[in-house]
Amino acid sequence: KFSAKIDEDTLEELEEVLISADIGVSASDKLLSQLREKVRAEKIRSPEELKEALKEEIIKVFPAEKLEIVPPTIILVVGVNGVGKTTTIGKLAYRFKTQGKKVILSAADTFRAAAAEQLSIWGQRAGVDVVKHQEGSDPAAVLFDAIQAGKARRADIIICDTAGRLHTKKNLMEELKKLYRVSEKEYPEAKIVSLLVLDATTGQNAIAQAKIFKEAVNISGIVLTKLDGTAKGGVAVAIASELNLPVFFIGVGEGMDDLEEFDPKAFADAIL
């Protein structure tokens, strides 16, 4: 039993907060049952203590890994439609460039209308080169060229934009695997990092996205975008809990420097 102050109503309120943040029913239940244990073990009495304890549980869910860049690195940026892949690449390019790294962008979204133009503008803003082909051409061929350019120009990082695709589309997921294979084959010395971009506004479907993209291209971690809105991005908790995937960065706007390193504490504070 809980102390007089922390009753089932309080826990229900917390459940509402967690679910409203898109953490989902099962991850919320898991957090709350851990919280119950803690209340018992640590004799938590006040609602404030309770909140802090729940925050700790949320923070604990995230693997503490950071994105490590060992040049040369190829970063494949993947995710469903409209989540913020191309924009995130612009931000990453700027970030790495500022850190003194040489970056090349690969416009391997040859499908979406004006995708290459969009990436080129980001390339100009960040001051990095962009390798692109015509709309409708083979994405693997674009990446191939970007890798050759990366080798020739001694780039530290090649960041590859990919077309948005729903994880349920088998043929498109195969196309993505091909990009991974091209990276392995054409640049065996390079480290391959697959970043999954998730829109913080997304609900429980993000779990399915993460699972299937992980199977396809061995996702290293997540970039959670659009956290400047009112959505909390809580589904990342469910994903971390189920798939043990870290969040590397968060997107907090549409500007070049609106990319921050993920801070689980700040994230938990925003939820509670």
Binding site: I19, D22, T202
Partner: peptide, 10 residues
């Protein structure tokens, strides 16, 4: 976006 979560109401 039909994948939107809880924030759709806001």
């Amino acid at each position: 976006d039909s994948m939107t979560g809880q924030d759709a109401v806001n």
